[in-house]
Nucleic acid binder design. Structure first.
Lengths: 224, 224
DNA sequence: AATACATAGATTGTATACAATGATACAGAA
DNA sequence: TTCTGTATCATTGTATACAATCTATGTATT
């Protein structure tokens, strides 16, 4: 079975092109390549020990993911995310995470429910200790569990795209620490609503969670 | 200005790779290549008079768009859209088109508003005459105008993706004719709400419009 | 000095050649 | 017969070669 619809889920992470693709993506998300940087095929190919061909193919995919944009016959440039983009993404996510939470309520498996509970529990522990690294990782994972639990390849794919898109920003936010406990409280409430099979409440809570997250980013002045 | 974020808007429709990409995409959307068909690089390259290189690059993009999926070392296959996918897409679109209508209310330009009014007016004319071809085209365009009017590259990109994704189905639906006048009435109401700057109402109406469109597809038994 | 043009270098775009992988068919053994 | 291994072929994956395009520099002309 396992209809593999989307490339980043085909997990060809071990083919050459796949590795190149993921490497460049990580380098962009982690800030090695910054906004408006120009990426040269030959240079990157040399760095990774491959020819231009797989690099070019990776570029095409990165472009569709919105991480770079290519000007024909000229070059590939790291895409800038404006503060308006971030705002738009959070508003879009507010809608979609709501839908996702609702569907997750209907389709979540035992194992997923359990992982979600563990996640919330563990996050509280690390929040108390101030372990920012683990908090960030658990926060990410919480949302991914929900994406997977909604049992919709289409929605999962969209949300993962947006989620990743604001990765850079989110990393900074969570490093700030202050919000992490508030955020985790919201996770807990969403989790409980899902567990009690109250789809409408889960939907509402997930929406609010996104709006709060965005407010937090604005307050911290993390956008330009 | 004109930050060109997404490849399909870079309109490199005139480069070789761009032409190949759009050609294959159209062939899939118009049904020349059907679900589960295998696409061979060499064959398509020969058909279009180009080498495998641009074909391969086009494949990578089509994969991320979700129109084909690639099994490493094996081949490229036209993606199947299940009836559940269609349902999911319409539910997602219901959320996003609502948001879009709301934002369009805030940002629509004079020219866009005028084109939208013309669109509704013309569609009524063609609906009366039973011109299915023009109706389909105007229906498409109505939504695109709204996507452009919302002034959000992120949302526009997402919605265009989904919109295109159900193109095959929509074509059949509209060919049925019956719903076209009901659908256009809904367009008119959305248009009026936008014109009167009533964002909330536009949002609500756009959502309902999607749900009705989906109901219609189900009733007609167009899904498997 | 300022502008237009020409030329050289760098970079991307495309085609081709070769390597690696997977599918198929057939032969032989259990 | 059925299973297994091998050889062959078709197809994809990657590297390289060549063509086209853009950028920059320098020169000539006004």
């Amino acid at each position: 079975m396992s209809d593999k619809f989307f490339s980043d889920e085909i997990s060809d992470k071990y083919s050459l092109r796949g590795r190149v693709f993921h490497k460049i993506r990580d380098d962009i998300l982690n800030g090695k390549y910054k906004e408006h940087d120009e990426l040269r095929e030959a240079a990157i190919g040399e760095e990774l020990g491959v020819s231009r061909t797989p690099v070019r193919e990776a570029f095409r995919q990165l472009e569709l993911e919105g991480l770079i944009h290519i000007v024909p016959n000229k070059g590939a440039y790291v895409t800038g995310i404006t503060s308006k983009d971030v705002r738009d993404i959070y508003m879009i996510r507010a809608q979609l995470e709501g839908l996702c939470a609702k569907w997750a309520t209907e389709h979540i498996s035992e194992a997923q429910m359990q992982e979600m509970e563990e996640n919330v529990y563990l996050a509280e522990f690390h929040a108390a200790k101030g372990h920012t690294e683990q908090i960030a990782s658990l926060d990410n994972r919480f949302h991914e569990i929900m994406y997977e639990a909604c049992a919709s390849k289409m929605l999962e794919h969209s949300l993962k795209d947006f989620h990743q898109y604001v990765y850079r920003i989110r990393k900074q936010t969570l490093a700030q620490g202050a919000r992490s406990s508030a955020s985790n409280d919201e996770h807990r409430k969403i989790m409980e609503a899902i567990k009690e099979k109250d789809g409408e409440r889960a939907c509402e809570l997930a929406k609010i969670h996104m709006l709060n997250a965005y407010d937090n980013i604005c307050k911290k002045g993390l956008l330009d």
